[in-house]
Design a protein around this nucleic acid. Structure first.
Lengths: 202, 202
DNA sequence: CAAAGATTGATGCTTATTGAACAAAATAGA
DNA sequence: TCTATTTTGTTCAATAAGCATCAATCTTTG
């Protein structure tokens, strides 16, 4: 499962791209995205401006790449506990949920910015979609219900999770990742979850 | 051949040198310096091995550069409060002392490693010398005593300060930088200090 | 408004870093 | 001891990133 094409860049491009993304994140903590100039970004990143244009055309493209990076990491964090498991039971969901909150915490500043800024609603949609699709795949693989029902269920859980994340982030990470997981499980293990996961709970 | 110490290097060399230094520091937290290979360093630094040899010949040279970097920062931290002051009185000494402990704290892992490892005694000597020379310059500038007397005084205060730093570091930074400064001032303002700084107190 | 200044893309040329390969030397393990 | 594996310096062509510079827009702000 290797996506080689874009993955075999040499160290330099990966490095400067990371520098640019980090720089943008730092600047976005100080001023709105619109007010940030490319010159500022490359200055913060300690990178020549010509190098910026080697990778991106506009700063929007950089922001896009930044978002996609984090979302890719989200997917990996979610899938990690599933690596050696073929059954889908409530215990694995628990650990995978923990991974998700850990992931959010490890990108704390990113999510703080993205989920509190009103003019960056785009990410919230993307994030909701990603989570929903992850859940959707699980549902479709494990119990062959109608696609429609799975859609609803996935959407429900996705929004529950997203809502938790947003509250957590906007609250400044006051609670621990473990605590958030417990709250999530409270919702999942509620009335809706039993019929979803009944095969594996017993 | 030898590493060119001219100050106007372009970003790439500064960057990779910093990467190598950071990598070495990380590895030294895990194993003794002797047991660290260059391959490990470049792997940790995410740098091609050929690049290492562009800058250093042995890993000892890298360690040397790392130490010199921190010591240079120490000198700057010490001198900073003096920038806009031509007189040398006890209050400026107070603030400058604070800067020194802040400096040590900002390089916490470095000093923890260097001052606790017995096989790195070399740094302690260098550090003592640097501090002593800083004090020595102040003494020579402000009161034109005999060089010998200044040497003694500087050495005395330098070792007092170094001793405090070592204790502080080896104690795991249990006390605040401010507290350490107070302890330092208690020593300096003791019986020996009055005749040293008498011209400027009044 | 208009001058002053900053930002933008783009250019040509130089330099640092990369990946790969290699033989020699060192280290580890059986 | 004898292998097998790292590590070590050192090459090379390819290329990413660097710096400096330019004219052409934008932004300030007096």
């Amino acid at each position: 499962m290797s996506t080689n094409v874009s993955n075999c860049k040499d160290r330099r491009v990966l490095r400067t791209q990371k520098q640019l993304k980090d720089a943008l994140l730092i600047l976005m903590e100080q001023k709105p995205f619109q007010a940030i100039s490319i010159s500022e970004i490359v200055q913060q990143a300690d990178v020549n401006r010509g190098t910026f244009y080697n990778h991106y055309q506009y700063k929007e493209e950089l922001l896009e790449a930044m978002i996609d990076d984090v979302l890719e990491d989200l997917v990996n964090a979610y899938r990690q506990p599933y690596q050696n498991i073929d059954r889908f039971d409530i215990s694995t969901l628990s650990t995978s949920a923990i991974k998700i909150f850990d992931h959010v915490q490890s990108h704390a500043t990113f999510y703080s910015l993205m989920l509190t800024s009103p003019d960056l609603q785009e990410l919230q949609n993307k994030l909701g979609d990603v989570i929903k699709n992850l859940l959707l795949q699980d549902l479709l693989i494990n119990n062959h219900q109608s696609n429609l029902k799975s859609e609803f269920l996935a959407s429900y859980h996705a929004h529950a999770l997203l809502g938790l994340i947003i509250e957590w982030v906007q609250g400044g990470f006051r609670y621990s990742s473990k605590f958030m997981t417990e709250k999530l499980l409270e919702i999942i293990q509620g009335k809706n979850s039993r019929k979803v996961f009944k095969t594996s709970i017993t």
